[in-house]
Design a protein around this nucleic acid. Structure first.
Lengths: 209, 209
DNA sequence: AAGTTATTTAATCAAATGATTAAAATGTTG
DNA sequence: CAACATTTTAATCATTTGATTAAATAACTT
């Protein structure tokens, strides 16, 4: 029976493989990734990745779940605060996501891609539900704000816009950098600016007639 | 020697294969598509697709070029008009692209994906340059507008925002529909609304302090 | 150190896949 | 219809690729 391996035996190798898988999957997608790519990236033998994780798909699922958790993590906390204003929440969310995306710029395209490849799978497999939107504090705050300011636009538009303004630059990064000729550093500086700009823009959008 | 085939012999088959390839490639990406998928989708034998187009990659390149042309097509005309206002140009561009995307909702993710997979390839292979931005009429219009209204924000932000507001909903469509529970028809209705809303929002953004 | 378990590797399999070939079917022309 | 060109197919190859196996190596326990 197991002696030392109480929970995780020498996490090093397993963790290295996962990290390599994360890199390759995120860059090339599921179909574009060969298990041999992961082996090479990790520096270990091909058989190792099947020894630790039973199959390419199992490994992929693990990576995907971790990515999605990164997306959802800590957000529920923010949106359900009772004594934070709607505007402040938007500031917090924008800042939180842009920070995360600067660190992991390839995640959005990867996630969107795989969701598109098989919409059901991720909805079923990874129950991302649990957000009964109408019950969220932020939803009520929006309703109150909309009423007070006579906002008539469908809130779905505003939601889409906030997400679009945050995420799209990262998805389109190669095109943007190619068309504008800016460097990666300059791009990141722009993203930093957006942490302050997006909330202002969103506010202007909500109040525009 | 060739008799009737002056230019294109029975375009039907070749065109059907291309159409099938367009469907499958756009939905599954390059790596995710097997030549057999295209054969099946087209209703023809596998060898046919290699008979008409020399290889999977050649066929893919053709599809990709057509998609990119669809993107660039007619836009140069709009942005270089001399007697159309900046605001009106934005309205025209937004309308043009949303119409196109409602008809071809899968193109953006497909294109972004493949650009990400190999940024150089598309830049080299398909010379999308030719837009010396500073020389465009719309650029000068922007400069004038910015000066007149004391706009200080980097124009790259505004460009990114316009593109983001147009394209992102289509890229995120599965997620959006899943989270909000709206149907495809309702989604398209929202997109229709955005043709009028986005120009207003963009204006509000440009003038927001 | 001996024995046991965990880790890693090289070699190999079977299925999937891009591509080719040779021949059959279809159409076209004189 | 005969001769020829074009279009389509079935069969087959050669690689690639996900996965397994059996053996070697390293680590740990007593």
């Amino acid at each position: 029976m197991k002696k030392k391996p109480e929970i995780e035996i020498n996490a090093s190798t397993e963790e290295k493989i996962k990290e390599a898988a994360r890199v390759v999957f995120t860059r090339k997608g599921y179909a574009g990734t060969r298990t041999r790519d992961i082996a090479e990236e990790s520096g270990f033998n091909l058989a190792l990745i099947n020894y630790y994780f039973r199959s390419k798909e199992k490994l992929f699922d693990i990576i995907m779940v971790e990515h999605l958790q990164l997306f959802i993590h800590s957000v529920m906390g923010i949106v359900n605060e009772t004594d934070t204003t709607l505007q402040r929440k938007i500031e917090l969310l924008v800042g939180h996501y842009i920070d995360m995306l600067v660190r992991n710029p390839n995640i959005p395209l990867f996630v969107l891609n795989e969701i598109n490849a098989d919409p059901k799978k991720l909805v079923e497999k990874i129950g991302v539900q649990g957000l009964d939107r109408k019950e969220l504090v932020i939803s009520k705050q929006w309703a109150a704000f909309a009423k007070a300011n006579k906002v008539t636009v469908n809130p779905i538009h505003i939601m889409m816009n906030v997400v679009a303004l945050i995420i799209f630059p990262f998805v389109g990064s190669p095109v943007i950098r190619n068309r504008t000729g800016i460097s990666m550093d300059q791009f990141n500086a722009l993203m930093e600016e957006r942490k302050k700009l997006i909330p202002v823009w969103v506010n202007a959008m909500m109040l525009s007639k």
